[in-house]
């Protein structure tokens, strides 16, 4: 009883004091309420700092550096403006080969992920019961709990000569481009499964029923109803699988044998010839810009 009494007293006390001493936070919020512009600034400063200084400025520095060259002995950057780095990339066949190979790997990884993710996500969203569904979502996310390097080296053991694949099914792609596509597909699969799963979740069951009622066979339903509906999700997933594969160089190092990708060229040159590495890196940026423009043209981004 006594305690209750005390509590009520203290609340009453606070209420009495309230109009006299406004808490600081309330004064700030009142101040902000009267000034919408200030409110906007306070809200946007941190994200704008991130976007402009950390992201755009470093991108700009990259673009600028690509037009410089290096001192051949000290490998210090010489700031004379020229197009030599880009000329070299354009004229030397080895860099064209590497760019095409990187593109092929990125597209291959995206294709493999799509083919695996669609049936998997369909089962998760439409067939599995609620309990099973939860387990499958966790299973799809599970690979993300393990370090990238551990997964990479596990695949090295899987595909290597006298490795797990070799000793069980008797065949292995060996170290090379095929192993790179396999490993990267495994690494990025969750990034494709999740958006596609979300896409299937949004697809009403009634549409599938209606398609069936109108006499469409399952394959026709898939091509004419399901695929158009989940296409934006597949495109969203492909942005991840494609861009992550474009920039990767560690997996290639681990399971790629003597294969090189764009990222390896950037890595190999970053000590001695930073401007050339920057020029090579802008190629990746350019490819991503083109890819994102194509994605936009499909209209998929508006539907995500």
């Amino acid at each position: 009883m006594d305690r209750d009494q005390g509590l009520t007293d203290s609340v009453a006390q606070t209420l009495r004091e309230a109009p006299v001493r406004t808490p600081f936070s309330r004064r700030v919020s009142a101040h902000l309420h009267r000034r919408p512009r200030l409110r906007l600034w306070a809200l946007l400063t941190a994200p704008m700092f991130w976007l402009v200084v950390v992201y755009l400025a470093s991108l700009a520095a990259l673009l600028v550096t690509a037009f410089w060259s290096t001192d051949s002995f000290t490998s210090e950057i010489v700031r004379d403006w020229n197009l030599d780095n880009y000329r070299l990339i354009y004229e030397s066949s080895v860099y064209r080969t590497i760019i095409v190979r990187t593109l092929a790997v990125a597209l291959g990884v995206t294709a493999v992920c799509t083919v695996v993710a669609i049936p998997f996500a369909y089962y998760m969203a439409k067939v599995a019961g609620p309990r099973e569904q939860k387990i499958l979502v966790v299973a799809a996310l599970m690979p993300l709990w393990v370090s990238y390097l551990i997964k990479g080296f596990s695949w090295r053991i899987l595909v290597g000569e006298n490795g797990v694949l070799d000793n069980t099914i008797g065949a292995t792609p060996g170290f090379g481009t095929a192993a790179v596509v396999l490993t990267l597909s495994y690494l990025w699969l969750p990034y494709m499964v999740l958006p596609v799963y979300a896409g299937f979740e949004r697809l009403p069951d009634s549409l599938l029923d209606a398609s069936g009622d109108l006499g469409a066979k399952p394959s026709r339903t898939f091509w004419s109803v399901v695929l158009p509906a989940i296409f934006p999700s597949v495109v969203a997933g492909s942005i991840f699988t494609f861009s992550l594969s474009m920039g990767d160089y560690i997996t290639v190092d681990i399971v790629g044998g003597s294969t090189q990708m764009l990222g390896n060229v950037v890595f190999d040159n970053q000590v001695y010839d930073l401007p050339f590495a920057a020029a090579m890196a802008t190629v990746t940026v350019a490819i991503m810009v083109v890819y994102l423009r194509l994605v936009r043209r499909t209209g998929a981004l508006e539907n995500i």
């Binding site: 030397s92 860099y95 003597s258 090189q260 190999d268 001695y272």
Partner: peptide
């Protein structure tokens, strides 16, 4: 620098 370029070319 030329050796670095050449090395990339060798690995192909």
């Amino acid at each position: 620098a030329a050796w670095t370029q050449a090395w990339t070319e060798i690995k192909g």
